[in-house]
Design a protein around this nucleic acid. Structure first.
Lengths: 136, 136
DNA sequence: TTAATAAATGAGAATGTGTATTATTCCTAT
DNA sequence: ATAGGAATAATACACATTCTCATTTATTAA
């Protein structure tokens, strides 16, 4: 694990970063791949994975290990929480302020050296709510 | 999604449940498979997956979608939080009491119908801490 | 500038986790 | 005992992610 070290800004990396910053959703690697491919049609999926991973290690972006089978990426790196729709899997930001004091609580009640935390809410998003109402 | 409905307690299911209740770790499906196989050598991995999923839907056990590439299972179903070691991937319980009021906060600051939440701490467990100390 | 060296990429193979299929076996109720 | 449905074991399949490696691109040293 490194913090802001020697990472060369190749064209591929730049485009990945720009496209990720452009959206407020939290795309999967494949979705990033699709966005990037419009500008760099010859880029490989492996390159996208490799660089997302690299930039996450570097602290430039956030890798979200939320529920579901795919990892998601976030250009906003400050501590904030997420909510995931159990219907469609989309992930949105939760706007209330983070609670760093939780880490202290956890440290007191475990033998771990606590590094951080993440809160993931689950719920039904607006889009998924409507069709369900119709069914009733 | 169902709550405590008609689920037949086959020998396989009973052993899966017993083995899961026996440990305080939060084993992956594969680890459950290994434990169960000592008592039922002919059981299939698919059966373990199918029944863990079924029992989770049923509310008999908890499916943890924590970080890492594998899902984990927990025989303790009341709301509690977890901490995951970034070194070895093991998952332990965090002992302080849950905060259901967080759901209300989230509901107020999003358009979702909030169903619940989970907090996952990350850190270094005791076992992983020692070798790292030695390296310095 | 050019040669040597190192790093990054693209293509595709390989791995690993989880799900679907299907023939067979096991219950359960007549 | 037998028919009908549920559950199982074995295996094939799907998908996300990582790995390999030959080629390309950038950097460094002369």
């Amino acid at each position: 694990m490194q913090t802001q070290s020697d990472i060369r800004l190749t064209p591929q990396r730049q485009v990945i970063l720009e496209e990720l910053a452009k959206v407020k959703t939290h795309p999967t690697a494949n979705e990033v791949y699709d966005m990037v491919r419009k500008r760099l049609p010859r880029i490989g999926l492996g390159t996208v994975y490799r660089n997302l991973e690299l930039m996450a290690d570097n602290g430039m972006i956030l890798k979200l290990e939320v529920g579901g089978s795919q990892k998601r990426f976030d250009a906003t790196t400050d501590l904030h929480y997420h909510i995931r729709c159990t219907g469609c899997g989309r992930v949105d930001d939760i706007q209330f302020s983070a609670m760093p004091q939780l880490d202290q609580l956890a440290a007191n009640s475990s033998d771990y050296q606590v590094l951080g935390h993440h809160i993931e809410f689950s719920g039904i998003c607006e889009s998924c709510d409507d069709p369900q109402e119709a069914k009733k």
